[in-house]
């Protein structure tokens, strides 16, 4: 039943934006389900394509939270992350897995509410998509 399905999400969070927001979101008691695995990275540019792919092998969706376009501490890290995310979307399209399972979000450093909202939307979308058919069986 799609209704009972709880998507397993991996969220890569840049320390400078996503993570701060995530912390705020927790502090202000937006509660996440156990199925969101938060991975902290010093910059979204450090997230390799393979990390996202591996997360997809094990789960239903991957969200990348990065700083706003001009606000990267490492100048172009978030642009690199964006390029990687779109290359993965291409691969997913090629093999017929919904590309919406990977999503890139941009955040200001301390916007817990926005973070929680975006994650919520992502979660709802995944619920609609249902389980990732490419996920490891068993």
């Amino acid at each position: 039943m799609k209704g009972d399905f709880e998507p397993k999400i991996t969220a890569f969070c840049c320390e400078h934006s996503g993570l701060l927001s995530a912390n705020m979101a927790v502090e202000s008691r937006f509660v996440f389900s156990n199925d969101v695995q938060m991975i902290r990275v010093p910059c979204s540019g450090k997230i390799e394509a393979i990390h996202i792919m591996k997360a997809l092998e094990e789960g239903d969706g991957v969200a990348v939270f990065a700083c706003h376009k001009e606000a990267c501490q490492f100048l172009r890290g978030n642009l690199r992350a964006e390029a990687r995310v779109s290359s993965i979307k291409e691969i997913l399209k090629e093999i017929g897995v919904e590309e919406e399972r990977v999503q890139m979000y941009y955040l200001a450093p301390s916007n817990g509410i926005k973070f929680a909202q975006l994650l919520r939307v992502f979660y709802e979308n995944l619920k609609k998509l249902g389980p990732n058919v490419g996920r490891k069986v068993g």
Partner: peptide, 15 residues
């Protein structure tokens, strides 16, 4: 590693 992962996803999809 990316191709390996993509192949795995695709093959899982086909069970």
């Amino acid at each position: 590693s990316i191709l390996a992962s993509a192949i795995k996803l695709a093959r899982n999809k086909e069970e």
